[in-house]
């Protein structure tokens, strides 16, 4: 997998197939990006599990925190890692010790560890790095367009009507749209410098 630019179908396939997501580094503080993403994904129907040893005993929108992936006690489809690049490897190693293995390991916007990705991919796990699942969901459902964001998709098909209020579904067919080459280059340069 080329981790600089993912095909939309790869991301769409992941977001359409996973049902449960364990978010490592989730924060109960309601102004943190991880809180926004957690709540958004829960509202889109994903079975969300907050993982953070510092908050065991607390809840995030009603879901109890667990200390580690091993403590979840049931299979999970995707691990979403909300940690800096330097903390990725131990989480991936923990994920690789799970039975059954997760299908996807996702590293948040700003986080990237190519060695960890290689390890996970060698075990047959799909990897996404330096992306936010909330933004990708919003982009591929075109919901993010309400904020004037370039969804980089085009479609002449009538999308399914929103099911709950203004929540759009991912079942929208589209083709690649306008690209953001300059922003992608800037992100790549930043990764290479750090």
């Amino acid at each position: 997998m080329n981790h600089d630019a993912y095909p939309d179908n790869y991301i769409r396939g992941i977001l359409n197939s996973v049902k449960s997501i364990a978010m490592v580094g989730a924060s109960p503080v309601n102004v943190r990006p991880s809180y926004f993403a957690f709540k958004y994904l829960a509202q889109r129907g994903y079975d969300m599990i907050p993982v953070n040893p510092g908050h065991v005993g607390k809840e995030l929108i009603g879901k109890p925190f667990v200390a580690s992936l091993a403590d979840i006690g049931r299979p999970v489809d995707m691990i979403d890692i909300f940690r800096n690049s330097s903390h990725i490897m131990p989480v991936v190693e923990e994920a690789l010790a799970l039975d059954p293995l997760p299908k996807v390991i996702w590293m948040q916007l700003g986080a990237r560890d190519d060695a960890a990705a290689e390890k996970a991919e060698a075990a047959g796990i799909k990897v996404v790095m330096n992306r936010c699942p909330k933004i990708e969901y919003g982009r591929l459902s075109s919901e993010i367009s309400w904020m004037g964001v370039n969804s980089r998709t085009l479609s002449s098909k009538r999308p399914p009507a929103p099911t709950q209020g203004m929540q759009l579904s991912l079942n929208r067919t589209s083709v690649g749209g306008g690209h953001t080459a300059a922003a992608d280059r800037a992100a790549k340069n930043k990764t290479e410098q750090s």
């Binding site: 075109s142 002449s156 009538r158 759009l168």
Partner: peptide, 22 residues
């Protein structure tokens, strides 16, 4: 067809717009 980069004239007509869902 997926992830083709459309040309400028295609974007000028389509980008941002889709049929109204309702």
């Amino acid at each position: 067809m997926s992830d083709r980069l459309p040309g400028f004239s295609t974007l000028a007509v389509h980008a941002g717009a889709q049929p109204d869902p309702t």
